[in-house]
Each structure stands twice: as structure tokens, then as C-alpha cells.
Design a protein around this nucleic acid. Structure first.
Lengths: 342, 342
DNA sequence: GTGAAAGCGCTAACAT
DNA sequence: ATGTTAGCGCTTTCAC
């Protein structure tokens, strides 16, 4: 058990015959150091495998290069997957830019706010990423009021909510693309299986469906069945929609609902072999890929990249030249559940 | 924008009329401080809302109270859910014990090892949790060789591998319970849908199946069909198993395989209404709950608790009185796909 | 361009 | 039981 400690700035300085400060400059402001000195110092750094101690740096600079992320107590079913993919992407993107992601949990919004305070005061976390904002969210208001850098994955859905930096995926455009795809495949009577009215995300997705119908001259309005998110719920909703004999395609608000719809459709297809009902889901979860479900994919990597850029700008106090609100286009992934009609 | 900084030990000391050191003692070794002094200091701490600066503490104590966790580049399908649930549980458990989880990524094992070095040298991460160990894993060997505290969720599957602290779930016991459940339900000819031979986890689960058959006097051996993990793969494997008319139940190595099997079974049941084939999966993913699939649940909360305890013991240099290897019993969740035979 | 001094907030070691 | 001293490793400020 060797007890010798890691090299420090002083170790490097001695060995390179310069002052500590010069070594620090080589690392932080290399351009002000004479090239030959710089070379020599860099060589010693490599030789000794020197790495700066971030705790010491943080103590001095009051900057931790750490972002906090609250992981929700329970994964919310199948669609929870999206959040997990986002977490992977975020970690990767942050790391690429010299930032780290630190996790924490809280049972409710108030507790989460207390953790923000705590993490700021103790660990000196530089900023936060919120991944599950909801209407009337007290957390964004608190963070904004306290001047804490943050960004949310998800728009604020309240009318007149104070605007804060966010990145989101254009759900409306997603369902619009899915609906257009089904129209192109030859379907004329398409139903939408959505969530109960009032959820910002769900309403947004419904809007895209209606817009596509309208644009095709099939509007205004359309067949809409609503249900809570879930597989059996989706199955029941699909049954209700399929009562109408002319419905030949279902645009679903989520992969969970779509998975349930697939069961209902399978029965309907058996009852009337001439009636092949097409389906599209939303989120492009692994389940969708597994069962061959056409779905709308959320490019979480793009979201992560923009999100990191937005917090970083706030941390560095950079004037944010690009928009502080970013809407990202989703991508339709066509699979077996939406064949062209012959 | 008020620029006044947070209170420090000195602020508290002055206000409480004691030395800095006494305040520190109140926080770290309260028992050596006279009760009345302690009370007074604590009151001031509360008044000023003082919180210790962890960077300063870390600089002094060479301890960060941070655990590193590598998130895999890509979520591996439906069963990836287990890992995500583990991550939630781990965060919660760590936080409860005053530890934080810091995320990082690496494209391969070698890069991950480099990150270990990096995180140790720069951030002073106290230990690591590995969640995806595999046969011939160079990472555990490196960590052990360098005396870095760590624990893995998952046994080392190599014969004669150097033993390190780990926590795992007893997959063998899981499939044994599932098989026994189907035997109790009246099934006599049960097939196992497993992964290709050679994966430690898959072989372990198969062993439980065989053991249960043996114990019931139906062994040795049994109907075994193998396939890669995945829904369509599971469907094909189930078809192969169901060719035998006497097979009335399928024990599946994962929920993905089981989900595929459900499709095959549905067809078989339609072809012969008298033949109701039961199914069980493994992992108890949200999908299983959604489609009513009987499955073996992994109590990741327990795993997280034991894992945190094991790293903590190493960090503190505590003599580990309990076993450094912990095997946790899974729990069978009975749902609609395994009704009793009438 | 380089060096010296000071101090970020904390705790280990010793003195009282 | 409490106080004093010193220093963890780094960067900011100001000399040179």
C-alpha cells in the first residue's frame, strides 16, 4: 500500500524549474506562456501524469462543473424509457464538455427545491437539468427567482408562464407526420387515441393529428378517443374507435396506448380479414421496435446537446445569442404496423 | 443581485462566541462538545442557515462522499429497465447515507478504466458501482488491483475469478419459483425458453428450471429452446416449443422473450381452444405489468441498499463483518398468463 | 512572461 | 472542553 500522494502544481513546478503559477497558466491560459516554457511544463505534466484537483480548484473559483439532475422516485411505465435514454445522452454530452452529472432524488417538488438549495450551498452545483416539468411547476419559478442556471427538457405549459430556457420535442409535428404517413398510405378515416384533455403534451400531440386531417381536407375535427396512459386502457380505447367500421388507422399518443391498440386491432382484423387497421405510436421505445410498431422517435441526443449548451451559457454568463427556447423535430420510424393499402 | 457569500465556519464561530474548531466539532464530533456550547452553536447554525462547503472539506479530508456510476452508451432493450430502476434506487439509498452518485460514460472497458483513474485523480471519487459486469471483465480486476472501493451488481461469472464485493439476484431461485408455480397450477410438461449457452445469467436461470423439474420427479432434463433476447426471437422459440402438443407452459428467461411467446401462444390457443398455455417471464418490467405477464421481480431496492453498504464499508475501512458477497431472493409476481388449470 | 503572496473553507494535530 | 496553528491544492492579484 504505497502512501505517496498524487503530484500537485508544486511538484510539477519544481521539476519544470518554474513557479507554481506558471504551471497553472499553462493549464488555464496557455497563450500567455512562452512556447518553450509551455512545452517544458507540458512534458513534465505528462511525465508525472499530473491532474488538477477539482476540489481545490472549486474552492478557489467557486465553480464545480457539476450539473444536478433529479431522478424521479418511480419510472412511469413504458414511456419512462425516454427519460432514461435522455439521461444517457445527457451524461455523454456533459462529459464531452467537461461537465459532470450528479444525481439526487426528492419525494416532491418542495423537497426537490430544498435539495437545490442544499446542493448549491454544500456541493456548489453549477446548474440543474429538469426532465419532468409539469403545469404549475414551482421548481422552475424558484430556480429562476434565485438566479440559478438551469434548463428543462419540456416546455412550460402554463399560459403566461415566465419564460425560462428549455428544450423540447415538437410533439405536434410528430403526430402530424404520423398522420400524414397514414394518409399517404391510403387511409381516409383515421382515429386518434389520446390522453384526457388538459395534459400539455397530450393536447399538443392531438393538435398535430387534427392539423394533418385539416390540411388533407378531411377536417375539421376527427375521431378522437381518450384514455389514461397504459396498455389495457389503450386496448379499450381502440375498441371504442373500431366500433366505427370505416376507421382503418389509429394514431396513438404513446407506445403504451399503441401496444394496447395492437391487441384490439388483431381481433378486429381476425373478425374482418379485409380490414387491416394501421397503427402508429409515440416515443419509439424498445417495445415499439420489438413488436414492429411504427412510432415517432424523440431525438434525445439533440435535446441533450442543446440542453447542455443552454446551461453552460448561463453558467459562464455568456450572452445567449441563440434562442433560449429550442423546439426539436421528431422523426417518424415506419415499421410493420403501417403498411401501404393495396 | 446580492453578492454576499454564504456563512462559513468563521461566521458561525464569531456569532456563537467560540472558535472555528469548536463549530467543526459540533458538526463532526458533537459528543466531545459541552452540551450548552453545542446548543448555542447549533442555534447559530440554524439562524444563519449555515452548510459546510464540501469542496473545502474534501480538500482537507481527501474524501468526496461521491460514488461513480458508468451509464452504458445504449440501453439494451426492454430489460434495460431493470438497470434504470436500479439507478433510481441507488441514488435514493446513497443520498440517505450522505453519498452522491456521479455519472460518467465510456465507449468500452479500457476507456472506462481510464475514467476511473481520471475521476479518482481529479474529482476524488471515493468508489464505484458497476452495474453491467460481464465474463472476463478487466474493470473489476483493475479496481481490485488498485485498491479502489467498489461493488458490482452482478456476480463475476468466470471460474476462479478473484472474488470482489458484489450483490446479485438469485436468478436460479427465480426460475425455480416460476417453474414450481406452474407445476402447482397443474402443468406437467413445461418448456424453458432461454438464451444461448454461455451467458452466466441465462445459464443460472435455466438451472433453476431444471432443478424444479427434478425436484418434482419430472427430470432430469426438460424441453429447452434457446434464442437471442428479443420479442420476435422469443416468438420463434415459442413456436418451436409448442410443436410438442403436450407442452402447456413456458418459462421464459426474460420478459422480451415472454412477450414474443405470448404472440405464439395466442395463436396456439386459437387453434386449439382446449389448450391454454401458461407463460412466465423474468424481470417484471413495466411491459409485463401492462400485458398481465407473470414474471420474476428483481428487488433492486434491496440490491441498492446492500451495494451502498458494501462500498461504504470499504471506503471507511470498516472490517466487513457481513459477507462481501450478497445473493438476493427474487419475488414471483403472478398475473393473468399463468392461471390454474381447471 | 514569470514569480511571490494571499486566501478560498475546512479539519488534523497539538497546546491549553 | 476549547483554542491555536498549519496546510490541503489551487487561482487571483499584483509585483517584477
Amino acid at each position: 500500500m504505497t502512501e505517496d500522494r498524487r503530484p500537485t502544481l508544486t511538484t510539477v513546478a519544481q521539476r519544470a524549474q518554474v513557479s507554481r503559477q506558471t504551471v497553472s497558466n499553462v493549464l488555464n491560459t496557455p497563450e500567455i506562456v512562452r512556447p518553450e516554457t509551455r512545452e517544458r511544463v507540458l512534458r513534465v505534466i505528462a511525465e508525472l501524469d499530473y491532474r488538477p484537483n477539482v476540489a481545490a480548484r472549486q474552492l478557489r473559483t467557486r465553480r464545480s462543473s457539476v450539473l444536478g439532475l433529479c431522478v424521479p422516485p418511480a419510472a412511469d411505465g413504458i414511456s419512462g424509457q425516454v427519460l432514461d435514454r435522455f439521461l444517457h445522452a445527457l451524461t455523454e454530452e456533459a462529459q464531452r464538455g467537461g461537465l459532470r452529472i450528479m444525481l439526487f432524488t426528492a419525494p416532491d417538488d418542495e423537497a426537490e427545491i430544498r435539495e437545490y438549495e442544499n446542493l448549491r450551498a454544500t456541493t456548489g452545483v453549477d446548474g440543474f437539468v429538469l426532465a419532468n416539468t409539469h403545469p404549475r411547476d414551482p421548481r422552475t419559478a424558484w430556480l429562476a427567482a434565485h438566479g440559478v442556471p438551469f434548463v428543462s427538457f419540456g416546455r412550460p405549459w402554463d399560459r403566461g408562464a415566465s419564460s425560462h430556457p428549455w428544450v423540447d420535442i415538437d410533439g405536434r409535428e410528430g403526430t402530424r407526420a404520423a398522420t400524414r404517413h397514414l394518409l399517404d398510405a391510403g387511409h381516409r378515416r383515421i382515429a386518434f387515441l389520446g390522453w384526457p384533455e388538459g395534459s400539455g403534451v397530450g393536447d399538443d400531440r392531438l393538435a398535430g393529428f387534427l392539423a394533418a386531417l385539416d390540411a388533407a381536407g378531411l377536417g375539421p375535427g376527427g375521431v378522437v378517443e381518450r384514455c389514461e396512459d397504459g396498455v389495457p386502457e389503450g386496448e379499450a380505447a381502440a375498441r371504442r374507435a373500431l366500433v366505427r367500421d370505416d376507421v382503418t388507422a389509429l394514431v396513438c399518443v404513446s407506445d403504451s396506448v399503441a401496444l394496447g391498440a395492437m391487441t384490439a386491432v388483431r381481433e378486429a382484423d381476425l373478425a374482418d380479414p379485409a380490414r387491416i387497421v394501421a397503427i402508429s405510436g409515440f416515443d419509439d421505445t424498445p417495445v415499439a421496435a420489438a413488436v414492429g410498431l411504427t412510432s415517432v422517435a424523440q431525438p434525445v441526443e439533440d435535446v441533450a446537446a442543446r440542453a447542455v449548451a443552454l446551461v453552460r451559457a448561463q453558467i459562464h454568463g455568456d450572452p445567449v445569442d441563440t434562442d433560449r427556447q429550442v423546439l426539436i423535430e421528431p422523426r417518424l420510424v415506419v415499421r410493420a404496423t403501417s403498411p401501404a393499402r393495396h
